[in-house]
Computed example of a mutant assay.
Amino acid sequence: MGYGLGVFLTAVGLILALAVQDMIDAVDLTMIGWILVLAGVLVLVLTAVQSNSKRQHTTTATTTHADGSQTTEQRTTERQDPPPAV
């Protein structure tokens, strides 16, 4: 799943919904086109959300002391993209 699949589904859906004038018995090509457009947009949104969630990394470390007490430390780091080339 990725941006390519989302763009492909959206393009095919828009072609079916807006450009195809043929009729097939018991099949509404316009509705199938709009369904494909919605599926393509959903894939694009899910891909963007998923790739954005990979930017954070959380590390948790638990230390047990000699007296039996525990200390937990949690660190969250964000991946910094390099600045754009000029």
Rank of each mutant, 00 (worst) to 15 (best):
L42F: 11
T64Y: 12
A39M: 15
G6Y: 07
A48S: 07
L29C: 05
T30A: 09
K54F: 07
G13W: 03
H57C: 05
T60V: 15
V43I: 05
G6S: 01
L38E: 06
V27Q: 04
G4F: 13
V7Q: 08
A39K: 11
I32H: 03
D25L: 01
G33L: 05
V27P: 02
L5T: 06
A61H: 14
I15Y: 12
V49E: 08
G4Y: 12
V20S: 04
V41I: 15
V27S: 00
Q50N: 04
I24L: 10
T10P: 03
H57E: 07
I32S: 03
G40T: 02
Q50M: 04
N52V: 10
A26Y: 12
R55A: 11
S51C: 01
V43K: 03
S53V: 04
T62D: 15
V37W: 04
V20M: 07
T58Y: 05
V12Q: 00
L36T: 02
I15Q: 04
D67M: 12
I32W: 10
H65F: 15
V27G: 01
Q21K: 15
T63D: 09
L29A: 05
G40W: 07
V43Q: 02
V43M: 01
T47M: 03
A19I: 01
K54N: 07
T63G: 11
G13T: 02
T59R: 13
H65C: 07
I35D: 00
S53N: 08
F8W: 14
V45D: 06
T60H: 13
V7P: 00
V7S: 01
L42W: 06
G33H: 03
V49Y: 02
Q56C: 07
D67T: 14
L14R: 06
T58R: 12
L14S: 08
A19D: 04
L5Y: 08
L42R: 02
R55C: 00
N52I: 10
D22G: 04
M31V: 15
V37H: 02
V20C: 08
G33P: 08
V43C: 01
L29E: 10
T64Q: 15
L14H: 06
L16P: 05
L18T: 11
T30C: 02
V49Q: 05
K54R: 12
M23C: 02
G40I: 05
T62I: 14
V20D: 14
V43A: 00
